[in-house]
Structures are given as C-alpha cells and as structure tokens.
Design a protein around this nucleic acid. Structure first.
Length: 440
DNA sequence: ATAGGGTTAG
C-alpha cells in the first residue's frame, strides 16, 4: 500500500480510525508520524496512538505490542491517560499476567477509574469469581461500568441468581442507575438460563420508562430474551418496532423461531431479510441449517450451505459442519454425512462424531461408525458423557466385535465413568428474588 | 472528542 504525499495528516487519522488489521494500522500510523509537524497539537498524536492500539488488541502478538509500547515510552505519549489505558487493555487481552504486572507499576495519581475497570475486566476473564469480587470491593468510587463488569462476571460463571442479587444491590444501595449496556447484560444473563417472560418485561418496561434509546444491542437482547422465555409474540413486537433492522435483529428473531420449532416461519423471515437487502451472517446460516436439520429438509439445507459459501463467501465453521452432518445423519444419509466430515477444513469435534455415531446405530451401519468411535475414545470430553461409551459399546456389539465391547467396558471402569441415566429438571418460578420493577 | 462494560448459534 502506498499513500501519496499530498494526503493530509487528518485524512490519515480518519483512515487509521477505521483500520481493523494490526499491520495496516501500524503502517498508517508510521506514515502519520512522519507527517506530523511540531506545530500540530499534541492531542493529535495521542489520538493517533489510541487508534493504532485498538486493532492491536485482537489479532496481534505480544512482541508487536511491546515494540509499540517502547515507542510510546520514547515519545512520551504514554503520559496521556487515554493512551495508557488503551495500552493496558491490549495487554489484558493478550497476556493477563503482563497486564497485571503493568497495573501494579502505575502510580496512584495516574490510576483512574478507567484503568481500574480495565483491570477488573481482565480479572473477570482470567481469574476466579472470588478474586474478581475482592478486587471490585476495593474500588473506591465504582461507577455503573464497574458494576456491569462484575455483573457479567457472575453470569459468565453461571451464577445467575447471585448476579441478579448483585444487580439489585446496586439499585438499592447506591445512587447509580442502570444504563442500557447494563440492561443488555441483565437480559443476556436472563436469556442464558430458563428465564420467565416477566423479567424481560421488567427490563423492557424500565427501558421505556427511562426513555433509554433502544440500541441495536438492546433490541437484539430483548428479542432474544423474549423468544427464550417462550414469548414469540413479544419478541415479534419488539422486532417490528425496530426502525431499521440489521442482521442482528433478523438473526435473533430467526433463532427464536427455530428454537420454538417454527421452521417455515424462520425460512420465510430469512427470505424476507434477503429481499430487503440485509446480508445474512454466519450465525444466520447456523440457524437456517439447524432449522432444516430439525425439519428434515435435506435439499433445502444443502441449498443454504451452498448459498452461504458461494454467494456470501462465508467459510463454514464447526457449527455449520455440525448442522450439515446432523442433517444428513438424521435423514439416514450416512455416506453423505461421513463425506462432509472427511472434507471438513476444521477438526471434527465430539458433537459431530456423536451425531454420526447415533445415526449409525439407528440405521444399523457399523462400517461408517468405526473411525468415529476410536476418534471419540481419544477425546477428553467423553468423561462428562458416560452415555457415549454405551453408544460405542452398542455399536461394537452390533458389528459383532465382542472383544471391543469388553475393551470399552474395561475403559469405562478404568476411567471411572458411570452410565448417565436420564436426567431432567424443571425450573419453578423466577430465579430467586428478581424484582426488577422495584427500581423504577 | 481520543480510553473502560454489552448483542445473535448450542
């Protein structure tokens, strides 16, 4: 890439702001540095550094970041709070240990709440809940972002009820009130575990009462939450109210339909979405393939897969392969399923093998099962699923391979696996004490 | 006007 000399520094800065890959960002940054004049305001240089750091957080490597870090020290740009916090965030995503070490060296005078919240988020990602909570408790002037980070941490550890209690603590014992980002966190927490529609309605009501703008994130989370709570009518209502629907809204709505077995509606929504010029993404296609699998629509599923690859140029992920293998397997097309597995560009996971093996048992095909069975036995995840041993043992019995049946039995004993009996659970009422409306 | 938290699959 070459940039002509007449391009102004301001234009380079805008280009840098939109850069998403580390190498092009660093390239633009170095061009910009060369063009800087002593008369330029110093804030200009610090903004450039912040923009350059953004893409470094995702796909970059530690040596690249250290190199940039050294440059920031030499140029004294690290003295800018925005630059320092951006750098810390990059480190926290690449190496939590380095970020922690850096954090300890920050003098108290420069250590503002932004830096502390970055550190809290880093702990939430890399440490246990108790350590994160201890750090949170020591923060002097927590803001709504500190509380949001901690709340998300409870949810990511599967502690829904504790998270909701924590949320209520904020609303009752501080002056802070939830902003829309925090409400998105609340909604996703609710959606992740057997939520009742009332919780979504509480959040929804709060949004309306407080005149919070229903952002893309918030509308998506509401649609998803209502759908997961079994209220497709409310979900559709929110969906219909969104002024300009984007791919997230459509996908959330489609997934809701698929979850509730409304496969034809899901397909209709997909078609309408395309008609309106909204481009489906990889998750939209996962939903479509899953719909076809459950509805037994083999030809339509193949069509979606082809459409995804040929027209939209989406590289199939493990999820897509999982759906398409399951689609063939459930339809008894074991050869086709096996062929997909052989041709996959990603390593097949236990879910994919299991769906093939289950179909092999159902359709009594021992030969296609053999490779998958041995593959599965080498995978570690099997410890959690005793039923898989039984499936494999049944398949060997079906093939008359009694010595292998004995081998599997011994393996089960050696690995101390119990056959999982049928388990079912039912949620009664709301997760404890979630009375959102109390904070109106 | 450049820093921190958030969305859709299973």
């Amino acid at each position: 890439m070459s940039i002509p000399h007449h391009v102004a520094a301001g234009e380079l800065l805008s280009a840098l702001r939109g850069a998403s890959c580390p190498s092009s960002a660093l390239h633009l940054y170095s061009l910009l540095r060369v063009r800087l004049r002593p008369s330029d305001p110093s804030s200009f240089a610090s903004r450039a550094a912040v923009f350059a750091l953004k893409p470094l957080s995702a796909a970059s490597s530690l040596p690249v970041l250290s190199h940039f870090h050294a440059h920031l020290l030499k140029t004294n740009l690290l003295a800018y709070p925005h630059v320092a916090s951006s750098l810390l965030r990059c480190y926290s995503l690449l190496s939590p240990a380095v970020a922690h070490h850096l954090f300890d060296q920050i003098p108290p005078a420069t250590c503002n709440l932004v830096v502390i919240n970055i550190m809290l988020a880093s702990l939430c990602r890399s440490s246990d809940l108790a350590s994160a909570r201890a750090f949170f408790d020591d923060i002097p002037n927590k803001d709504v972002i500190s509380w949001s980070i901690m709340l998300a941490c409870y949810f990511s550890h599967g502690r829904l009820a504790d998270g909701l209690a924590f949320f209520r603590t904020m609303t009752f014992s501080t002056q802070l009130s939830a902003d829309y980002v925090m409400l998105v966190t609340v909604l996703t927490g609710c959606a992740s575990s057997g939520v009742l529609a009332q919780s979504c309605r509480d959040v929804h009501g709060y949004v309306v009462r407080h005149g919070l703008s229903c952002t893309i994130y918030l509308a998506t989370a509401l649609i998803d939450c209502y759908a997961k709570a079994g209220r497709l009518d409310y979900a559709s209502h929110v969906f219909a109210q969104v002024p300009s629907r984007n791919v997230m809204h459509w996908t959330a709505m489609i997934c809701g339909m698929v979850t509730h077995l409304r496969y034809e509606v899901a397909i209709q929504l997909f078609e309408e979405m395309c008609r309106r010029g909204v481009q489906p993404n990889e998750m939209t296609f996962t939903a479509m393939l899953s719909a076809c699998g459950h509805a037994g629509l083999v030809e339509q599923g193949k069509m979606f897969f082809k459409l995804m690859v040929d027209k939209y140029g989406i590289e199939p992920s493990i999820h897509h392969y999982g759906c398409i293998v399951d689609l063939y397997a459930k339809a008894g097309k074991l050869e086709d399923a096996y062929e997909v597995i052989k041709a996959m560009r990603v390593e097949p996971n236990i879910v994919i093998w299991t769906s093939l093996l289950a179909a092999c048992k159902k359709f009594k095909n021992f030969d296609i099962a053999v490779e998958g069975m041995e593959k599965v036995l080498t995978m570690e995840i099997i410890e959690e699923n005793g039923g898989l041993y039984t499936l494999i043992s049944d398949l060997y019995a079906m093939g008359g391979r009694w010595e292998d049946v004995v081998r599997i039995r011994r393996l089960m004993e050696a690995r101390n696996v119990m056959k999982t009996r049928g388990l079912s659970s039912i949620k009664l009422g709301e997760p404890q004490g979630f009375t959102f409306s109390a904070i109106s």
